[in-house]
Simulated assay, not measured.
Amino acid sequence: MGLNRAAVFAVVALGLGACAEQVRPIIDPATSVAGGRNYEYDLGQCQQLAKQVDAGGRTVGGALLGAGVGAAGGAIIGAFTGNAGRGAAIGAGVGGLTGVVGGGASAATSTRDVVRNCMIRRGYAVLD
């Protein structure tokens, strides 16, 4: 089971690394600085800034928190069924995977927000 969790974490972390390049806010050229002519240049700079979002740290943090909560809940349920250790192990696995996904989603949202805010501050009328 440890190998599966590691594989899921690796896939999520790699996927989040590409998030910044995929964020392309829609702008209104009529109300944006210079009619949006420098969009690609400014977008590239904002995407570089967004890469500073600690996606890996958020994913690990989410996994650890999820594993801890899952282990505690699993141990309680396991105690009622006569096997607290097994319940804790199952709870930690499920909670850890859930935390990876939750932490990854948080990092993706932050990356998107960084790119959008950067473009807004550079004078673009961001519509999405």
Score class of each variant (00 low, 15 high):
102 G>R: 13
89 A>Q: 15
101 V>L: 11
104 G>F: 07
90 I>H: 10
108 A>N: 12
120 I>A: 07
93 G>F: 04
99 G>R: 01
117 N>I: 07
99 G>M: 01
109 T>W: 04
90 I>N: 12
114 V>H: 06
121 R>A: 14
103 G>E: 14
85 G>Y: 07
102 G>F: 09
115 V>L: 08
114 V>R: 02
102 G>Y: 14
108 A>D: 01
88 A>L: 09
107 A>T: 09
117 N>E: 07
90 I>R: 09
114 V>C: 05
87 G>M: 13
107 A>P: 11
98 T>G: 08
97 L>D: 14
104 G>Q: 11
84 A>Y: 11
124 Y>D: 09
98 T>W: 04
87 G>H: 13
108 A>T: 08
121 R>G: 07
87 G>N: 14
117 N>W: 01
106 S>R: 01
111 T>R: 04
117 N>M: 00
104 G>Y: 04
104 G>K: 00
120 I>F: 00
124 Y>S: 01
106 S>F: 09
98 T>E: 03
101 V>F: 14
110 S>H: 07
115 V>S: 07
89 A>L: 13
84 A>F: 07
85 G>R: 13
98 T>P: 04
97 L>T: 12
93 G>A: 05
98 T>Y: 02
102 G>M: 15
115 V>T: 10
102 G>W: 06
120 I>N: 10
104 G>P: 12
84 A>V: 02
91 G>M: 08
113 D>L: 08
115 V>M: 00
121 R>N: 15
118 C>I: 10
108 A>Q: 03
92 A>T: 14
124 Y>C: 02
105 A>L: 10
89 A>V: 02
103 G>H: 07
93 G>S: 12
98 T>M: 06
104 G>I: 06
95 G>Y: 05
105 A>T: 03
98 T>K: 02
110 S>I: 11
116 R>N: 04
98 T>A: 11
104 G>E: 08
118 C>Q: 00
113 D>A: 15
91 G>K: 03
102 G>D: 04
122 R>K: 15
89 A>K: 12
90 I>S: 06
120 I>H: 11
118 C>G: 05
114 V>F: 05
